[in-house]
Design a protein around this nucleic acid. Sequence first.
DNA 1: CAACAATCGAGAGCACTGCTCTTGACAACG
DNA 2: CGTTGTCAAGAGCAGTGCTCTCGATTGTTG
Lengths: 249, 249
Amino acid sequence: MTTDTRDSPMTGGKLRTARERAREDITNEITAVARRQLAEVGASALSLRSVAREVGMVSSAVYRYFPSRDELLTRLIIDAYRSVGDAARGAVGAVATTELTARWHAVAGAVRQWALSNPHEFGLIFGTPVPGYRAPADTIDPAVAVPTALLEILVDSLARGGRVAWRDRPVPAVLHAELAQLRAGLQDVIRGAELLDDGALSQGLMAWTQLIGMISFELFGHLHNVIADHDVYFAHQIGNIALDLGLAE
Amino acid sequence: MTTDTRDSPMTGGKLRTARERAREDITNEITAVARRQLAEVGASALSLRSVAREVGMVSSAVYRYFPSRDELLTRLIIDAYRSVGDAARGAVGAVATTELTARWHAVAGAVRQWALSNPHEFGLIFGTPVPGYRAPADTIDPAVAVPTALLEILVDSLARGGRVAWRDRPVPAVLHAELAQLRAGLQDVIRGAELLDDGALSQGLMAWTQLIGMISFELFGHLHNVIADHDVYFAHQIGNIALDLGLAE
DNA sequence: CAACAATCGAGAGCACTGCTCTTGACAACG
DNA sequence: CGTTGTCAAGAGCAGTGCTCTCGATTGTTG
């Protein structure tokens, strides 16, 4: 991505000499330092001035690159989504495609391990939203990586004859319509998404909620005085969820 | 509670004239104003100075009543737990004890409605923990109200012959021991807690996680571009969870 | 009742924050 | 070469949590 120099549609294109390249470098350095400090002190205590100090600039100079602290946080949110998405994809890739239960455990465990290793980043994206939180236009793309990885497993399972735990409940019409729309949107990103009938899609969303919910409980201290060995508890519950999803052997 | 004057064991007992009574009044007023501002601007933007201003004091005076901002927040956390616990108990009390599914829907809906009405308080207790977060010594008591209400329903169901959705999975020994300890602790607060076998207790914890997880997703914006009609989605998933719990008819 | 001790509200002050504005230096482009 | 746009630096503003000091009020005790 550094070789190509022509092919400039209009404004961007080739890296416009020092200025433009320096700007990108410095922007990256600021976000890198910010990410480091975020991991250390958490989002609420992250100080733009402190980041500037570590980078070696004065605080007002940072505003040339980020219009506000919230925009910096938004950038960190995007990075965090990308990071956890990469972790999930990497874990899935290390397991045979046909080993559905193993894949489910792999992605769930990878997300949890990522969260345990980066608690403040997890809190940033799954905890209380920051007040001046940026519109999710740029965030939605990387945010869907984890649920996509989950639903892909479910789709593969359905394709191989797996059936979600049956519930003899009618799906309300309005929910049916919503799920249909969601399924249509998923077709662009998941091959075979049409296999996700209402029950499967609901259960898939539920599994995603359960995964993040369990990690949140563990990380935010709600398992205190409830469960001490989080590892085995998590693994067991994740196994139960796999049964709910009816992952095909 | 204002009539009695004797009966002082040693230090506290009767309200020790003006000083002590004024102190309690002012403490309550500060927390009341803080709670109001919390609901308005959220925890991260809650300013001790702003609270002091609204109360009519100077900021340093507030420190006579709360040693730090974090202690004020801790107090608000306790209040929030109490508030949501009251909401849950109130909802449960309005439903016939034998209507287990209705009770489950009632408490789940009550918690969600409370969260929608008090999003910042929900974020305070179930979102990213505040950095200087106080030891949970005072918070555990009111924090168990909601899960207790849930497990009580499950216990009643088991007593009436209900059976949690069966999963043919062995429970690891260490988890079995943990659940036994948890069950022992629950005996003090839930009559019949011994009916909660490992599977039921696991599923009960899972239901609690699902409930809070779903509300978190809704409130923190993770259902954006996923599900638009949160009401029907929530109700449907809560109904599915009821089936998992095997609530007896 | 008077003297002492504890408590309280107010004010000043410190170090810090996000953010704005101005100033002077440098690079890019005509 | 000169003009224009970008940049880092500094000063400054309003706000924050928190500490300390200082009178004033209240409670307790000799």
